[in-house]
């Protein structure tokens, strides 16, 4: 900024790189978002004429049980997915960071799910849940496995399993990076201090990788509050509406149920919810880190 005030010329390359991206971002991201905000104050159904209705859509949302159910489901799902993914990813990262054989191979293996598209993974698991597991259940005579879990009231657990399986990769990677940033001499000092494994984790490892924990937690919560692909691939929100997340609700009702304006309002609310939760998390966790470093 200072240099600009002094009249120093900004190189042309800067504009060539920044301006096209800025324009594209504005056209494909900012404009649709603002249009969405705009339509959320109308009664547009996706076609035909419309008029402004003020906050009616927002008020309607809170009275619509489909939408409130979607919120409860999404919060439940995000809570479980975040906790489980982070707990398991941290455990795997600690395992991968210790002196084990085939370390690089295992790292690659754990990272594979991240490279697959969630839709593909969803379809593959749909097949596994609907065909392979029931067959296997019959083979070993375990009645609990006879039914396709995606067709039961526990369908959300099926989705949770797939989400965790896929989400682990990224979180593990981040935790691993965190663990590798810790000076091994600190652990040697701890060994001489007689620190046990649990104390070592609680008093040394975890505090030292706290910034990585923050990143993972914020990204996980944000991602799982917007869960969509896996559900579309596996249950389409069903059975009934039992696995309809907010994003799924927005998509299905907005584009197929002529609730374009209402679901636009819903999208705005989801945006605000994610934003607020993320900011709160950052606030709390950063304060924690500050205390530690």
């Amino acid at each position: 900024m200072k240099s600009r005030k002094k009249g120093k010329k900004i190189p042309l390359t800067y504009y060539m790189m920044v301006v096209p991206i800025g324009i594209l971002f504005f056209i494909f991201h900012t404009v649709p978002f603002l249009r969405g905000v705009f339509y959320s104050f109308t009664n547009w159904t996706g076609y035909g004429s419309w008029k402004f209705v003020g906050l009616k859509n927002y008020l309607y949302m809170f009275g619509n049980s489909n939408i409130t159910d979607a919120y409860w489901f999404t919060f439940k799902f995000a809570l479980f997915a975040t906790i489980l993914v982070n707990a398991i990813a941290l455990a795997i990262a600690i395992g991968l960071n210790s002196n084990i054989k085939f370390q690089s191979l295992l790292k690659a293996v754990y990272f594979v799910p991240y490279m697959l598209g969630s839709l593909i993974v969803g379809f593959v698991f749909k097949f596994i849940f609907s065909n392979l597991i029931p067959q296997f259940g019959h083979l070993i005579h375990l009645p609990i496995l006879y039914n396709n879990i995606l067709g039961t009231t526990h369908a959300w657990i099926g989705i949770l399993i797939v989400t965790i399986w896929q989400g682990l990769a990224f979180n593990t990677l981040i935790y691993l990076a965190g663990l590798q940033s810790v000076d091994p001499e600190i652990y040697e000092a701890a060994a001489l201090d007689g620190v046990g494994p649990w104390q070592k984790f609680r008093d040394i490892t975890f505090p030292l990788i706290a910034p990585f924990f923050t990143i993972n937690l914020v990204l996980s919560v944000k991602g799982y509050l917007m869960v969509f692909d896996q559900i579309m691939a596996m249950t389409n929100g069903g059975p009934g509406n039992s696995t309809t997340s907010i994003s799924v609700e927005i998509y299905t009702q907005g584009f197929q149920g002529s609730q374009f304006a209402i679901q636009s309002a819903n999208a705005v609310v989801l945006f605000i919810v994610v934003l607020v939760i993320s900011l709160i998390q950052l606030r709390i966790l950063n304060k924690r880190e500050e205390k530690l470093s």
Binding site: E185, I186, L192, P207, L208
Partner: peptide, 16 residues
């Protein structure tokens, strides 16, 4: 259990 204490080159203090 060796009843020793060690001082490391990079100090190895617990940063937290």
């Amino acid at each position: 259990d060796r009843d020793i204490a060690m001082v490391f080159q990079n100090y190895a203090l617990y940063p937290n």
